[in-house]
Structure formats: C-alpha cells, structure tokens
Design a protein around this nucleic acid. Structure first.
Lengths: 123, 123, 123, 123
DNA sequence: GTGGTCTAGACCACG
DNA sequence: GTGGTCTAGACCACC
C-alpha cells in the first residue's frame, strides 16, 4: 500500500506518515476503516515496528487515526479534514523545496523540466 | 544576499553552501570577486561563524572559491562550471521533494499549482 | 447506568469495575439485587463482552458480586464494605491526578476551581 | 527542576512533558532561554535519554520549545500561550480524574478532603 | 558537547 | 493477535 525509500535523506517515520496520510487523503482508507497493523506494516516495509509505531502515534496526535487497545488502529471520524490539513504541510514542504532549488541557482525552466520528467516517469 | 531557514530540517551549512553556489551560478558573484566575509555573513544570517566557515571550507575544496591568506575568500577562476555541478545536487533534491509530495497524496495538479504560485511570487 | 471514556488511557475494564463498584457504593445496586447482564452492559457501553466479563470476574473475586450459574451476577451480601475498600483505590488515583496536575503547572486555585466547576455541573 | 514518580501508572514521558510545560507555564523558563539538555535531564531523572527526547519532541511539535541542532533546546517565542494551552489539557485530565472518582463512588466530601490533604502536604 | 533517527528486544495490558 | 512504553546502544550530523 505504501512505499518508502530507505536511501532518502528524509526520516523513515516521516515517509511513513506521509504515506498513511496519503492513503486517507486519497480515500483509499476511509473513516472507520481499520489501518494495517503496526507489525504487519513494519514487516512489509522492512522497518522496525517502533518506527511505524511512531508514525502512527504522531498521526493519532493529529487526529487522523485512533487506536483501540488490543485491536488495531482505525481511521478517525474527522480524518479527511485532518489529512487534508496534512496536505497543506506537504504543500509547504514542497514550497520550501522550491525555495531551496531557487536559492541553489536552478532556473524556473530547470524546475519545470524536473516536474515534467518526474511526472512522466510517474505514469 | 542569501537567505536561509533555520527551522528547516536541512543542515544550515548545506543551505549556506546552496546559497553561495547559487550566487555564483547566477552570476551575481563573478570569478575574481571577493566573497562576503565569514563573520559578516554569519552575523547577517544569525548563525554560528563556524557553520559559515565550514560552508566556505567545503566550497573551497570543491574549487568554487579560493582562500587568500588574511584576505578572505574569492570566487575561483573555473567557478562557474564547478557551481553548475552543484546544480545537479539541487536538481536531485528537488526530485526527492517531488517524490515526497506525491507520496503525501498531492496530485500533480496541486504540484504544478504550487510551482506556478511560487514562480509568480518570485517575480 | 455507567459511563466510560473509551479514549482514556485508563483500561476499559478498570473503568467498568470502577463504575460497578460505584453503583454498589452509592447504594444504587443493593445486596441481593441482580447486576446488569454482561451482554446488555457490553452492548450499551459499546465494548467487547470479554472486557465486561473480565470486570465482573474480578469483582466477583473481590467479593462484590456473586455469580449464579445460568442466572447472571448478583450483588453479594457483604458487598458494601468490599466496594468501599475499592474507594481507597479511587482515592489514591485521585491523589495521583492531583500530583500530576500540580506538576503540570496548575495552581491550587485552578484545581479548586475545577472541583467547584465539576461539582456544580454534577448536580 | 522537575520531579517524576517512576511508580506512577502515568507514562514517564508524559510526566516529563508535564514537568517541562509546568516550568514554562510558571515562568521558571522564559522564551529564549535554554532548556536543560536531553542527556543532562535524563541523567538527573535516571531515565533513558530516548524518553526525555520523546517528551521534548512532542513539546516541540506543540510549539513550546524549539531545537537548534548541535546546540540545545530553547523555549519558543510564543511558548507561554502554548504552554497555557497545555494547561487546559492538564485541566481536562483533572476533570477526567474527577469524573472517574465520582464514577467510582467517591462523594464530593471525599474529593474535597483529598484536595485539602494534598494541598497541605504540598506546602 | 548538542539533538535526531533507527534498531533490537523486553515487558505490559487489552481483546 | 493488538497497541504502548521503556531501555540500551549504535550511528549521524551539527556546533
């Protein structure tokens, strides 16, 4: 369901958070539905369960998920809005990255080229 | 001349390096010209002088600047090409950021919108 | 009759035990009377019947209730005193909460205000 | 500066968060000032550094502190309001505890007695 | 020295 | 089986 890049400089738990938020934001995981278990996800991503647990813990603090002891994590009721708020963070991070790219001397044409390249590779 | 974001997860010295490389790559700082002094830059950016010194040290090692004993740093002769090599790093980081944005659930339309927004704000 | 908070860090079965003990201690459930059935209570509290069963099992072990095969649980004869012993636990937990509140920076005036507020709302 | 109770059922990291928030809320730690280092605090509280780090991480997410890489954590600028917002949480937890106490069958006179007892012991 | 992430493994409580 | 906390120790980057 989620994919992460262990070689990225971005912390694993952030990548996992982004992935989970993405699932909710795209409607692949709807309010009331059960999220994959920490251990299952950790096994699948080949990551330590603690790392996944941390991602969930923070998303629970944000109100995207809620945990029921002894029985999994569930998408919270108001999750969609919360997850979309999370998208704002993602958008901000993207804007930061654009600032950084400009700061580094990339021209807008370079940037737009990169977006096109990534987009076509993505399809 | 340069601006940095102290709350970014990106290392300060990397941001400073990117900024300096950007100045050279954009031609705002030409070969033979004197770079801002470590202490001046540190004061302006409100950053530890050691951090600025480290950025210069690494750029000198890359051949973008050269140190003249007792008289600051100057843009090296072949600096432009060297600085452009740095652009590749910037481009890669940008691609990473795009991956991350996608992973977070942003649609390509969102991403393109962000680019447009930043671009127009930039002018 | 009982209300619980599923998002509290306190174990559900403890909350249920507290609630049942409270019913007895306040005299709302008198010795010889029949306690609500496990399934009814579980349904009403939207909780796993196992959890309610566990609460009863422990209260039976404490001597507050007694089970009659095939006919539910009844308030035991000496239940009142037993239930009052449970009050000591409750009192200790309250003292813990007060410590915690102080540690968090609440002033005694805040605390007394909270007590007053809750008390008046309770009537 | 902070004291915690290792035998409390409350998670250590929550107690530490409460303690730190308390320091800020009471003005013992003012915006701009440096907080005790993770390792120092961990050593003093005889707790694993990770546990203290987690407390700080969450308070940073709340905006009470900010971390500067390689050089400690500092009380954030708007920390006072954030910390006070944290006091609301503390107040809510206290109200929960009062609910719980009532639910368990404690009378208001018992509760007020407990408050008085704790208060006098506190002086 | 500082904060930060990650792993590993133990232990608890809940269902 | 589930989530949750804690410890221990390694490793990284920054100042």
């Amino acid at each position: 369901m989620i994919d992460i890049d262990p070689r990225s400089p971005l912390p694993l738990n952030d990548q996992i958070k982004a992935g989970l938020r993405g699932l909710v934001a795209r409607g692949l995981l709807k309010p009331g539905e059960q999220a994959p278990s920490i251990r299952a996800l950790a096994g699948q991503l080949r990551v330590n369960p603690n790392t996944v647990a941390r991602a969930f813990r923070e998303l629970i603090a944000e109100g995207v998920f809620e945990a029921r002891r002894g029985d999994g994590s569930y998408v919270a009721d108001g999750a969609l809005k919360k997850a979309e708020r999370g998208l704002d963070h993602a958008r901000e991070r993207l804007l930061d990255a654009l600032s950084e790219a400009r700061r580094s001397g990339l021209e807008w044409s370079d940037i737009e080229g990169a977006v096109r390249a990534k987009k076509s590779e993505d399809k």
